[in-house]
């Protein structure tokens, strides 16, 4: 059962400058492409601090921002909005492969 749907839980995200890949800020202040390693801010105030930290580490990323997430009992976090879900887990349909001739 998901808890904390209030939007208080937040992670900091951005796209990496060199290749555009979606990244999150981890506890060590590095950008990671793994959402499960993202640093979580648990209230508004730490959210603000997290964003400031992200902005301070923004040399190799573009325009960091905060993303509201939910957290399961087992600690799995998932973005609240569909847009951020898609940013985190990719396209919602199968794309055609480079060597495909038919769409399957």
């Amino acid at each position: 059962m998901a808890k904390n749907l209030s939007g208080d839980l937040q992670v900091a995200s951005a796209n990496r400058l060199s290749d555009g890949v979606v990244v999150w800020l981890d506890d060590a202040g590095d950008w990671t492409s793994r959402l499960d390693r993202a640093a979580i801010a648990r209230d508004k105030r730490t959210g603000e601090i997290l964003l400031l930290r992200a902005q301070a580490e923004a040399f190799a990323v573009i325009d960091p921002f905060l993303v509201a997430v939910t957290e399961d009992d087992d600690g799995t976090i998932e973005p609240l909005s569909l847009r951020e879900k898609i940013r985190a887990s990719g396209l919602t349909f199968d794309v055609i492969a480079a060597d495909a001739v038919r769409y399957a």
């Binding site: 055609i96 480079a98 001739v101």
Partner: peptide, 14 residues
Amino acid sequence: KPAGAPPGDASAVQ
């Protein structure tokens, strides 16, 4: 636009 495909997409082979 084959049935069920994303409109306008083509693979390199296509």
